[in-house]
Measured scan of single mutants.
Amino acid sequence: MSGNGNAAATAEENSPKMRVIRVGTRKSQLARIQTDSVVATLKASYPGLQFEIIAMSTTGDKILDTALSKIGEKSLFTKELEHALEKNEVDLVVHSLKDLPTVLPPGFTIGAICKRENPHDAVVFHPKFVGKTLETLPEKSVVGTSSLRRAAQLQRKFPHLEFRSIRGNLNTRLRKLDEQQEFSAIILATAGLQRMGWHNRVGQILHPEECMYAVGQGALGVEVRAKDQDILDLVGVLHDPETLLRCIAERAFLRHLEGGCSVPVAVHTAMKDGQLYLTGGVWSLDGSDSIQETMQATIHVPAQHEDGPEDDPQLVGITARNIPRGPQLAAQNLGISLANLLLSKGAKNILDVARQLNDAH
């Protein structure tokens, strides 16, 4: 009898209710805020589980004197976190989706994509230029951005401005803007500013005609071990179906173009009346040469937790077992079709030249 009692006690200790789920994140304040929001949602869904947040620095956090596009290494903000995932030191990792490459290392998958916040870019102005827009900034004003995508589009749109690289986390960039006289304004992701509670610093939100956004911008991705079915089931509740389908289309477009950090590629997606609209573009580094096109596809946005595919093969690095396969494939095909259209119009040449120029500098 006593033996059975011990077995029952052991089973209770090993039951999922007692389990601590370890969540990996970057150390920056924004990353911690984003991770806290994901953990809060998981806690609400699984009140019996405990969650421990483990923060670590990544290569991208450490190399702050070089433009991201020049470092010449993929997975700048993800490699150390993936290493911890691989060694079973954490069970899942919360990322900004735009930091996750469209091809993940073997053994990993994006197990959830959370509801997207505003994906557009924002302009934050130096205190002396508050009330201005990019259009009304004085001639030769210097605007800071760490992104080739932003610089290429904005140089084309605002030729009277000069664009220079600015690195560091959000706090560091804002301090550089406010305390030094080098920059009249800087460009940042609206979602990051909003998550930090800095709505009052948003001086201008850039519309798609001015600057399309990065693939996955404004959404959070939760990376897990691809074979860890328990954790895949656990994080599945975080999937937002519309965000998922938009981001599958965007990531398929980028992957098929073979774009990345070192080339200016941008997108804009919208879901309306059962249609998914995808606009994508590529630019030369100075913005003088560009190709942009829009395509659409009829896609039914499923309700969360309709029964999805059981075999769960990944699409552009994403596993969404609780979302039907048909809409996911339709979104992926839309991204591939748009990429093929741009490639047929000469996108590869623009991107190759951009890559060579970026590598040469």
Rank of each mutant, 00 (worst) to 15 (best):
residue 157 K to W: 05
residue 345 K to Q: 05
residue 202 V to M: 12
residue 360 A to N: 02
residue 236 G to C: 15
residue 90 V to M: 10
residue 82 E to A: 11
residue 322 N to M: 10
residue 164 R to E: 14
residue 177 L to P: 00
residue 326 G to P: 11
residue 357 L to W: 00
residue 292 Q to E: 15
residue 267 V to R: 00
residue 286 D to W: 09
residue 138 P to T: 11
residue 142 V to R: 12
residue 79 K to Y: 12
residue 310 E to M: 15
residue 112 A to D: 04
residue 156 R to T: 13
residue 69 S to H: 12
residue 329 L to Q: 15
residue 193 L to D: 03
residue 218 G to Y: 01
residue 293 E to D: 14
residue 150 R to K: 02
residue 324 P to S: 11
residue 103 V to P: 12
residue 304 Q to N: 15
residue 229 Q to G: 14
residue 111 G to Q: 02
residue 208 P to R: 12
residue 158 F to W: 12
residue 322 N to V: 11
residue 49 L to K: 08
residue 54 I to L: 10
residue 238 L to V: 08
residue 97 L to Q: 01
residue 196 M to F: 14
residue 319 T to N: 05
residue 302 P to N: 00
residue 23 V to F: 13
residue 268 H to G: 01
residue 94 V to P: 06
residue 267 V to N: 15
residue 294 T to D: 00
residue 72 G to T: 08
residue 57 S to P: 07
residue 34 Q to G: 07
residue 187 I to T: 05
residue 350 I to Q: 05
residue 343 L to Y: 01
residue 62 K to H: 02
residue 138 P to A: 13
residue 148 L to P: 15
residue 317 G to Y: 07
residue 190 T to V: 11
residue 281 G to I: 02
residue 283 W to S: 13
residue 147 S to C: 05
residue 291 I to L: 11
residue 140 K to D: 13
residue 160 H to D: 12
residue 56 M to S: 14
residue 34 Q to V: 06
residue 319 T to P: 05
residue 154 L to R: 05
residue 347 A to S: 09
residue 136 T to K: 12
residue 211 C to F: 15
residue 94 V to R: 00
residue 57 S to C: 10
residue 86 E to P: 01
residue 349 N to V: 09
residue 61 D to H: 06
residue 217 Q to F: 03
residue 140 K to N: 11
residue 53 I to Y: 13
residue 53 I to R: 08
residue 238 L to S: 04
residue 350 I to L: 06
residue 73 E to T: 14
residue 341 L to V: 10
residue 328 Q to L: 08
residue 330 A to H: 03
residue 41 T to D: 10
residue 43 K to L: 08
residue 126 H to D: 11
residue 192 G to T: 04
residue 345 K to N: 11
residue 163 F to L: 14
residue 322 N to R: 13
residue 295 M to F: 07
residue 193 L to K: 00
residue 124 V to I: 11
residue 290 S to R: 08
residue 262 S to C: 02
residue 237 V to S: 12
residue 165 S to P: 13
residue 129 F to T: 11
residue 351 L to A: 03
residue 36 D to T: 11
residue 349 N to L: 13
residue 191 A to G: 06
residue 24 G to S: 06
residue 315 L to R: 04
residue 271 M to G: 13
residue 236 G to N: 01
residue 286 D to E: 13
residue 318 I to N: 05
residue 46 Y to T: 09
residue 293 E to A: 11
residue 286 D to V: 11
residue 99 D to V: 03
residue 59 T to F: 15
residue 174 L to F: 14
residue 268 H to C: 07
residue 124 V to G: 05
residue 232 L to H: 07
residue 30 L to E: 01
residue 126 H to K: 12
residue 226 A to R: 07
residue 289 D to G: 08
residue 27 K to E: 10
residue 198 W to R: 08
residue 268 H to T: 00
residue 156 R to I: 14
residue 210 E to N: 13
residue 150 R to I: 02
residue 91 D to V: 04
residue 171 N to K: 13
residue 27 K to N: 14
residue 256 H to A: 15
residue 28 S to D: 00
residue 232 L to Q: 02
residue 56 M to N: 07
residue 24 G to I: 04
residue 36 D to N: 10
residue 174 L to R: 08
residue 273 D to E: 12
residue 126 H to R: 08
residue 310 E to Y: 03
residue 100 L to H: 01
residue 287 G to A: 05
residue 86 E to T: 10
residue 317 G to T: 07
residue 64 L to K: 13
residue 270 A to F: 14
residue 121 D to R: 02
residue 67 A to E: 01
residue 41 T to E: 12
residue 325 R to K: 08
residue 140 K to L: 11
residue 104 L to T: 06
residue 73 E to Y: 10
residue 51 F to I: 12
residue 111 G to T: 03
residue 192 G to C: 11
residue 337 S to E: 05
residue 291 I to M: 13
residue 91 D to L: 03
residue 137 L to A: 06
residue 167 R to V: 08
residue 145 T to P: 01
residue 264 P to S: 15
residue 100 L to E: 13
residue 191 A to M: 02
residue 323 I to P: 02
residue 274 G to R: 04
residue 245 L to A: 14
residue 154 L to F: 07
residue 148 L to G: 14
residue 158 F to S: 09
residue 62 K to A: 11
residue 188 L to I: 03
residue 197 G to D: 04
residue 343 L to E: 07
residue 40 A to C: 15
residue 101 P to N: 07
residue 54 I to K: 12
residue 261 C to M: 01
residue 282 V to F: 09
residue 265 V to F: 01
residue 104 L to G: 08
residue 216 G to W: 03
residue 343 L to A: 08
residue 48 G to E: 12
residue 240 D to W: 02
residue 359 D to G: 13
residue 188 L to W: 03
residue 353 V to K: 00
residue 288 S to M: 15
residue 165 S to E: 06
residue 131 G to P: 06
residue 171 N to S: 12
residue 59 T to H: 10
residue 122 A to Q: 05
residue 360 A to R: 05
residue 153 Q to K: 04
residue 27 K to L: 10
residue 224 V to C: 13
residue 178 D to N: 08
residue 220 L to S: 05
residue 102 T to L: 04
residue 283 W to I: 05
residue 278 L to K: 01
residue 244 L to V: 09
residue 330 A to R: 15
residue 268 H to R: 15
residue 237 V to R: 10
residue 27 K to D: 14
residue 139 E to C: 14
residue 297 A to P: 00
residue 44 A to D: 09
residue 283 W to V: 02
residue 198 W to I: 07
residue 266 A to D: 08
residue 49 L to Y: 15
residue 316 V to H: 04
residue 227 K to H: 04
residue 235 V to T: 02
residue 42 L to E: 03
residue 275 Q to W: 02
residue 158 F to V: 05
residue 81 L to G: 07
residue 84 A to S: 10
residue 216 G to F: 05
residue 76 L to E: 06
residue 202 V to F: 01
residue 68 L to M: 13
residue 346 G to C: 15
residue 34 Q to C: 06
residue 132 K to M: 14
residue 335 G to S: 01
residue 76 L to N: 12
residue 247 C to S: 09
residue 30 L to W: 00
residue 81 L to A: 05
residue 337 S to W: 00
residue 253 F to M: 14
residue 264 P to A: 06
residue 193 L to T: 04
residue 351 L to W: 05
residue 129 F to I: 05
residue 292 Q to K: 05
residue 327 P to S: 05
residue 63 I to R: 09
residue 189 A to C: 10
residue 52 E to P: 07
residue 267 V to W: 02
residue 60 G to Y: 02
residue 164 R to G: 10
residue 115 K to L: 11
residue 276 L to R: 03
residue 55 A to S: 12
residue 58 T to D: 04
residue 243 T to M: 00
residue 297 A to F: 00
residue 276 L to T: 01
residue 56 M to D: 14
residue 278 L to A: 05
residue 190 T to L: 13
residue 23 V to Y: 05
residue 153 Q to I: 04
residue 171 N to W: 14
residue 259 G to V: 06
residue 309 P to M: 00
residue 217 Q to D: 01
residue 246 R to A: 14
residue 42 L to D: 02
residue 98 K to T: 01
residue 140 K to V: 10
residue 299 I to N: 13
residue 162 E to P: 00
residue 65 D to T: 09
residue 72 G to C: 06
residue 26 R to P: 00
residue 93 V to E: 00
residue 82 E to N: 09
residue 70 K to R: 08
residue 34 Q to E: 01
residue 49 L to I: 07
residue 33 I to Q: 08
residue 179 E to S: 11
residue 218 G to E: 03
residue 192 G to D: 03
residue 26 R to F: 00
residue 298 T to P: 05
residue 352 D to E: 06
residue 258 E to I: 12
residue 258 E to L: 03
residue 297 A to C: 15
residue 136 T to D: 13
residue 30 L to I: 02
residue 31 A to Y: 00
residue 102 T to P: 10
residue 149 R to C: 03
residue 136 T to N: 12
residue 127 P to F: 11
residue 50 Q to H: 13
residue 286 D to H: 09
residue 342 L to Q: 08
residue 118 N to E: 14
residue 66 T to H: 08
residue 268 H to D: 10
residue 293 E to Y: 07
residue 262 S to Q: 08
residue 216 G to K: 00
residue 194 Q to R: 13
residue 121 D to N: 03
residue 203 G to F: 00
residue 121 D to A: 03
residue 153 Q to P: 11
residue 188 L to A: 11
residue 121 D to L: 03
residue 157 K to M: 12
residue 138 P to C: 10
residue 70 K to P: 08
residue 207 H to T: 13
residue 270 A to Q: 14
residue 140 K to F: 10
residue 151 A to T: 08
residue 342 L to E: 03
residue 302 P to T: 14
residue 244 L to E: 02
residue 266 A to P: 04
residue 201 R to I: 15
residue 144 G to I: 02
residue 103 V to Q: 15
residue 300 H to E: 12
residue 69 S to I: 11
residue 32 R to L: 08
residue 312 D to E: 10
residue 329 L to Y: 05
residue 259 G to Q: 00
residue 254 L to V: 11
residue 324 P to A: 07
residue 321 R to L: 12
residue 330 A to F: 07
residue 181 Q to A: 07
residue 114 C to R: 09
residue 114 C to W: 09
residue 86 E to H: 13
residue 214 A to L: 03
residue 113 I to R: 01
